[in-house]
């Protein structure tokens, strides 16, 4: 009976993997086209801006090298468009984004790579917490839809949902700076470590609390809550849930085995779809709390007009987000038996 299952699972994995690479590829192409569509003198504009602001840092030779790099990145080498595109693609796939401007001549790629663990750490932990608490709260709210506390939670959710993460971060900052000044308002750590030890880790966590909270709060009480509540209402009206109650199964059990289990499937999709938005929000959160991740780096790069570093941030983030979504997709068959054996 379960004969065809292995093959279809393989098929599923194969399509997902192809889609994964296709997305990254099309994202890179998209970036190329957008940058190419910019006004022609962009390169000279950047070079001019650089020599004005940080004159003397660069010798003419490295400026010329930079100019070449930029022309390649912008696809403006004067060769055929196809060649330009291939050069661009080659640079991207070899992670060669040229030297950064903000800490010349360190390669931009290296700069981003150094910051990436901070961002991924903050984002993965807070997204996991958001997703779990949001789903639990949403399911409970859907199940007890007529209770008073549900109405209160819903009003909070409706007010929180449209507020972007970074505005939430500012609000938290206002609150914690004036009303309850307990958390450190900025930075990743307060002392430069000599070695990695428990104290250091605790210190990092302590500093990440506020940024994490500003990511968790609007999610757990916003998108995650609202979507799981809607899904719960849907699952509650399904025949199988109603029949479970008809059979005399206790409410708590039905909530766990029937409702929660069945909303898990679409909620994985919701998570995957919102990842891009969460990522952008996290970048701004980092800036606001001076958290030493990719966002703060991008901020400095944007300030200095460091297009190489920005490009590296963009492409690597694209890969990071697509990879996260891809991994979620791979998780899908584990929560939905219908995919595993179809």
């Amino acid at each position: 009976m379960l004969h065809a299952s292995k093959k279809s699972l393989l098929e599923y994995l194969a399509t997902r993997t192809i889609m994964y690479f296709a997305t990254i590829f099309s994202g890179i192409t998209l970036t190329y086209l957008l940058v190419k569509a910019m006004p022609v003198d962009a390169v000279e504009n950047i070079i001019f801006g650089l020599t004005q602001t940080v004159a003397g840092v660069y010798d003419p030779q490295s400026i010329n090298k930079l100019r070449e790099d930029l022309y390649e990145i912008f696809g403006l080498t004067g060769k055929s468009p196809l060649e330009d595109y291939l050069i661009f693609i080659r640079r991207v796939f070899t992670f060669n984004f040229g030297p950064s401007f903000i800490s010349f001549p360190t390669p931009a790629f290296e700069l981003v790579l150094r910051r990436l663990p901070w961002t991924i750490g903050l984002l993965s932990v807070s997204t996991a917490i958001t997703w779990i608490t949001g789903n639990l709260l949403g399911t409970i709210a859907g199940y007890f839809r007529t209770k008073k506390f549900t109405k209160v939670l819903e009003s909070i959710a409706i007010s929180l949902y449209p507020v972007p993460y970074y505005i939430m971060a500012l609000i938290l900052m206002l609150l914690f700076a004036f009303l309850i000044p307990i958390f450190p308002l900025g930075g990743g750590i307060s002392v430069i470590p000599e070695s990695i030890n428990l104290e250091l880790i605790l210190n990092i966590i302590w500093h990440s609390l506020l940024p994490a909270l500003s990511l968790i709060l609007p999610g757990a009480l916003g998108w995650s809550f609202l979507s799981s509540r809607t899904l719960t209402l849907e699952v509650l009206s399904e025949d199988y849930t109603r029949y479970a109650e008809f059979r005399g199964l206790p409410g708590k059990y039905v909530l766990r085995r029937y409702v929660l289990r069945n909303i898990l499937v679409p909620q994985v999709t919701v998570l995957a779809l919102s990842l891009g938005g969460i990522f952008s929000g996290a970048l701004l959160t980092e800036v606001i709390f001076a958290y030493p991740g990719v966002g703060s780096l991008a901020y400095r790069a944007a300030f200095a007009g460091d297009i190489n570093t920005l490009m590296a941030v963009l492409i690597l983030s694209m890969i990071a987000v697509s990879t996260a979504i891809y991994l979620l997709d791979l998780l899908y068959p584990l929560v939905d038996p219908r995919i595993r054996y179809r």
Binding site: G27, L34, I307, L310, L314, I325
Partner: peptide
Amino acid sequence: IIVPGFLLLIVV
């Protein structure tokens, strides 16, 4: 939808 649009705007 998948590409971080905000970063794209930053570059542009």
